[in-house]
């Protein structure tokens, strides 16, 4: 009597299917709409999706959306560029120089877990209530994940590659540029993802103080006014912004990390 050997392999290889992703979102929104219409969810607790959509369309038509987005994006871009740029430089220094490592690691370990929102009043004292404190908040948030990812990436670069480069007489700068940086790039791109997400999270905090324009300021004002449809509309804009940024980084990864495939 023969029996097939029972199959025991398979699984543990999750794959993202686009259709399922879209369908899940659609089902969620449909459920939300149904719950609102049936009166299971009070409009005070959560406005129906139709109202949110209407609010979004109104925002887009009036040009307010563009105005708020422009203000937030300029803060995001400059804050992220400053913070992530500094993070890469400091991370490289920590990854390559003993003195910087000894000095930098404990400082980063001490400052990374601080909620940046708690420092907002200090930023206002240091940088005022204008653009500088907003950019600084975002930069501060983006700096740490980038620094940690960079030195982690540098630490992870195969030492034999560095010895190889040395054995062929490559100058130090070339070793950093051609061996260390590309080797650390995958980790740095993951760091970019986290830093970008934190920057978007902090846009609301950054625009708490003295901002009349910006998606964060808009969401705060809607919250203060209990205009929940606009509040959720603003949150949707932030979430789309997050998706866009994540998509851009994904595209950058597939170009820059072509060699991994």
């Amino acid at each position: 009597m023969a029996e097939p050997v029972p199959f025991r392999g398979g699984g543990f290889q999750p794959r993202a299917r686009r259709l399922v992703a879209v369908a899940t979102l659609a089902v969620l929104v449909a459920g939300w709409s149904l719950a609102s219409r049936a009166g299971w969810v009070s409009p005070i607790a959560l406005p129906p999706p139709e109202e949110v959509a209407t609010a979004l369309v109104r925002l887009a038509r009036s040009g307010e959306l563009a105005r708020h987005l422009a203000a937030s994006l300029s803060r995001l871009v400059s804050g992220f560029a400053l913070g992530a740029g500094a993070g890469v430089v400091v991370g490289l220094a920590i990854g390559l120089v003993s003195l910087a490592r000894s000095a930098g690691m404990p400082v980063i370990a001490a400052l990374f877990p601080i909620p940046k929102i708690a420092l907002l009043p200090l930023f206002v004292v240091w940088f005022g209530i204008g653009e500088a404190s907003k950019v600084a908040t975002i930069a501060f948030g983006a700096f740490f994940p980038m620094a940690v990812a960079t030195y982690g990436g540098v630490d992870g670069v195969d030492r034999t590659l560095i010895r190889m480069a040395q054995s062929f007489g490559l100058p130090t700068l070339s070793i950093v540029r051609k061996v260390v940086l590309p080797g650390a790039l995958p980790a740095m791109l993951s760091g970019t993802r986290i830093a970008a997400a934190i920057a978007i999270i902090l846009i609301v905090a950054a625009e708490m103080i003295g901002a009349n324009e910006g998606i964060g300021a808009f969401i705060l004002a809607a919250g203060n006014l209990m205009q929940t449809d606009q509040l959720v509309a603003g949150v949707v804009v932030l979430s789309v912004l997050g998706l866009t940024v994540s998509g851009l980084i994904g595209a950058a990864e597939s170009v820059l990390l072509r060699w991994r495939r």
Partner: peptide
């Protein structure tokens, strides 16, 4: 200029930021 709290308002006025 929305400043969220009374202490923040007082601080901003003292430092001539509003």
């Amino acid at each position: 200029k929305p400043l969220q709290s009374l202490p923040a308002m007082a601080a901003a006025l003292k430092t001539n930021q509003v």
